[in-house]
Amino acid sequence: MTLAPTRGSKRRAIATPAVARRPLGFFLALPPIILILLFVGFPIVLAFAFSIGLTGGLNHVIASIGLNVHEAENWWGTPAAYIEVLSNSRILRDLSVTVGVTALSTVIVIFLALGIGLFLKLRDGRMARLLSGLAIIPLFIPVVIASWAIVTFYSGDGFVRSVFAQFGVEAPVWAFTMVAVVIGSVWTSLPFAVLMITSGLQAIPNAMIEAARDAGAGFLRIVVSILIPMAFVPILIAVTFTAIGVVGSFTVPYFTGPNAPNMLGVSMSNYFSAFNQPQQSVVMAFIVFVIASGIAAAYVWANFRSAKDQGKV
């Protein structure tokens, strides 16, 4: 009988530090949590209050400086600013351009990244490695510089038109059009998507592909039925990150896009500083936020699915 209590106390002795460590871990995590709450969370709450017309307290100064501010007459606020923004045809055009550019850029980026990834997986060679290496380059070139390069390349007196003019051909001017914005968005988003999708495809064991070939599957069948479903989670992560990045982009559309309609990031900036209508600007920000949350939900779902596939959930 003497053995049992000894064992019990031993176990307790081992268990105690683990219990004591728990609050310690919490305290260690506290500084970044406080930092985020204070410097990000709190301004978001303030901005949301401002967007629904709660202009008292800390929002008082910006409300009195800004033009065209909708003020609430009761404590729960008013949707007046949202109604104004969502019935403004100019902003609605910006919104549809934003969604369109995001969708098109994402499709192009994923298509290119998949192409490079599949090339690398199925025909591993110098050419494939060179391509995947080249695709990473935009990561090391600041977006401002790349945007200016795109503008000068496609402008009225730019490189493309100059070259075509030599042969008497009139090339289109793409600078300051949505085409340049899409090109710029693809340029900035490609590296991450290539890294993500390439590593996702590389992680698939070759035996999976060989088993499919053995079963009689050709190239297209292997890609559609084996590789894409097996790399589905990394592909979806690349899709969400690309889409969220493009939907909230500013530099590329600001430098390479037209005056109007342009993407909401640029509109937001115009409304905030040039037009001095901060409330409308904040409302647009929340609209972009809602779109991005929708995309983020897909990301969370993808992670959940992968955890489920691995039997963790």
Binding site: P205, A207, M208, E210, A211, M230, F232
Partner: peptide, 10 residues
């Protein structure tokens, strides 16, 4: 029949 079976997990 492959050594690691190569069953498609999806």
């Amino acid at each position: 029949v492959f050594q690691n079976y190569a069953l498609w997990p999806h």
